[in-house]
Design a binder for these strands. Structure first.
Lengths: 146, 146
DNA sequence: CTTTTAACTTGCATTTTGCAAGTGACTTAT
DNA sequence: ATAAGTCACTTGCAAAATGCAAGTTAAAAG
């Protein structure tokens, strides 16, 4: 009888926080999700040209991983066969509270910009989250209507 | 005249989320904070023996970075000169909402364990956060009393 | 048909991660 | 007083990840 070191081979441990950091604990994934959620980005080029200057191979790698985890889905643009359209799934939009708390924490403790976003969240966090979900739902329905 | 690419040399961008992921966006930092916050860990050995099996040099590196960012502080154990005592700062305990949302997200979307923690959070998130802060405050006062 | 665009892939150098062994300071046991 | 053990790391090295720069393929535009 072998005593297995890791009961769940998928994760290093069974802790839910560990699962989160194994999926999202890098310097790019949450920024990609931010751009989809808060800026409405949907294409590789948009992500590429975001604020932080991600490398092409890293972007491709992260998008692939986010798809594998079911956080985003993809489709071809029917109007332009070259384009891939990336969208958040239900699992992906459910990350909104995580992003929101990280923004609040950094705004309280680090020198950052975009005070508008911070004030929007501080004013009414629940409303901010609801609005993010509404924008997501609108896009998702619009995508299905095509 | 040189046009600087990055207005804030400290961060890749001015976005607060970016600041958070530059500090916490790896697979170990938030787990160390979890162990301090939720399990009361204070020593290098305790962190080393946690669930996920961190490497000694990585643990040392992450503790050093968390100190540099003002998220934890250190002191010597007055009863044992070999021991370093690690503690969360105000900045560190303010990460509780981030950890909480990550736990909830993973519990909702991944196969994980520790349902007790998840239910505790789901039952009353604000109470859970208040209790974490109270435990932290108690330790901090006790440490000062020595 | 040629040029441009979109989404990548590739080769390679650098950096990060992690294994295994080792070190110095301190405590415990003899 | 000395030897053995503990604590918190450091070190050397191999493997993996990251990121730069150039390139590729498919589709659209001219």
């Amino acid at each position: 009888m072998v005593t297995k070191k890791k009961p769940s081979p998928k994760w290093r441990s069974g802790c839910p926080l560990n699962a989160s950091v194994e999926i999202l604990g890098d310097r790019w994934s949450l920024l990609i999700i931010r751009d989809m959620m808060l800026r409405g980005f949907r294409s590789y080029k948009e992500f590429l040209e975001s604020y932080e200057g991600i490398a092409t191979n890293i972007l491709a790698d992260r998008l692939r991983k986010l798809m594998a985890h079911g956080i985003i889905t993809t489709g071809r643009d029917p109007l332009d066969g070259r384009k891939v359209i990336y969208s958040l799934t239900e699992k992906g939009i459910d990350l909104a509270p995580v992003l929101t708390e990280m923004v609040l924490w950094a705004a309280a403790h680090e020198k950052t910009e975009n005070p508008g976003l911070v004030q929007l969240i501080q004013k009414d966090k629940e409303q901010f989250l609801a609005a993010a979900r509404e924008r997501w739902a609108g896009k998702t329905i619009a995508a299905r209507a095509k």
